[in-house]
């Protein structure tokens, strides 16, 4: 693969960061469009893995994914440049708002625009799920793991307990190791 220029890396992530509404998950279709389709820097399978790891490492998922991809393309420095690109516009915008627009979130136009965007965010997350599904839920065992985890999460809406994603993620990793081990044991017989 041709060496990616640092400027290209920064500008690409800057563009993604400028339009990342609704959190890291809704960002996936944009990442996929820019990085997989347009630039060919990564593929959907790798993105799925970065998200999976981003769930259990500290920090914001968008930052984790940017660091991963930048690091893969241009090493340590690339990881930092991609991450700075991602946070550049949001940070500048936030500072401008903090200085000049004290009542920004109350502005009726801002509220209307965001209500519209929230509809789009729903679609973007549905797309993220569709995109990642075939790389994540690959057989019956992973389907069960998916259902149990989702069920536990949804149960927190109705039952009085809370569930840290860390526990789920750790459980998933351990379950994965056990399932794989059991499967390879079957094959040997």
């Amino acid at each position: 693969m041709k060496k990616v220029s640092i400027l290209d890396l920064f500008l690409t992530f800057m563009k993604i960061g400028a339009f990342s509404f609704g959190g890291g998950y809704a960002m996936l279709p944009i990442l996929s469009k820019e990085l997989v389709e347009k630039k060919g820097w990564t593929d959907d399978k790798e993105l799925t893995d970065y998200y999976a790891i981003g769930q259990c490492t500290p920090g914001v998922i968008a930052v984790n994914v940017s660091t991963f991809i930048g690091n893969k393309l241009r090493g340590f420095f690339g990881g930092i440049i991609a991450t700075l690109g991602m946070v550049f516009i949001p940070t500048v915008l936030l500072l401008v708002i903090a200085i000049f627009l004290t009542r920004f979130a109350d502005n009726p136009y801002v509220k209307d625009a965001l209500s519209g965007i929230s509809a789009c965010v729903c679609v973007l997350i549905v797309n993220a799920v569709i995109k990642m599904w075939k790389n994540s839920v690959v057989d019956f065992a992973t389907f069960c793991l998916f259902l149990v985890s989702l069920g536990l999460c949804l149960a927190t809406w109705f039952l009085p307990f809370s569930l840290s994603p860390v526990i789920l993620v750790l459980g998933g990793a351990i379950a994965g190791i056990i399932i794989k081990k059991a499967k390879s044991g079957d094959k040997k017989k």
Binding site: G22, I53, C122, G172, I174
Partner: peptide, 28 residues
Amino acid sequence: YVKGAMYGLRAVSMALISYAGLGVMKIT
């Protein structure tokens, strides 16, 4: 072990993303 852990992790990650998506839909 890394392969096994990633294999399980992807399924749980999928569940967490779906859950977040359902949460956004519930609100909006």
